[in-house]
Design a protein around this nucleic acid. Sequence first.
DNA 1: TCCTTGACTCAGA
DNA 2: CTCTGAGCCAAGG
Length: 141
Amino acid sequence: MPGFSSPPNPKEYQATVWEIARQVPPGKVTTYGQIAAMIPPPGTLNLRDYEAFGPRWVGGAMANCPEDVPWQRVINSQGKISLRPGAELQKQLLESEGVKFNERGKIDFDIYGWNGPDPEWCQIHGLFPPPPLAKNQPRLF
DNA sequence: TCCTTGACTCAGA
DNA sequence: CTCTGAGCCAAGG
């Protein structure tokens, strides 16, 4: 897939991503985009470019995360697990926390979506409170 | 140094 | 619902 990138300061950016991911409680999920939206544009990046690439940088951070990070709770904006080696394990871990998938492999954000950390926590860490997760369309029954 | 390769998202068709 | 293109950086072989 063409068009990727890494943040100006990968180490610092990844550490921030991991710290946010650690706030997601069991049985809840967030998205690469939601985490990216909480972090101010790194370096001299303008907001437009950051919004375009931030989610991919979050994905890159999750690929290298320490063991204490609940990486399985970070999924894509469609409410699905991004296809890759390890995707099956991710699904199993989430199911063991009580997260349900519909027959198309989608998670309902209305039920399992995380609303972000407390505003106070965001304030302390210099982060933005995240916008609500976009409603996906889980197929009924 | 050159080339490849990446856990994404959104708008359109 | 599915599929495509655009966004255009940095580490490692």
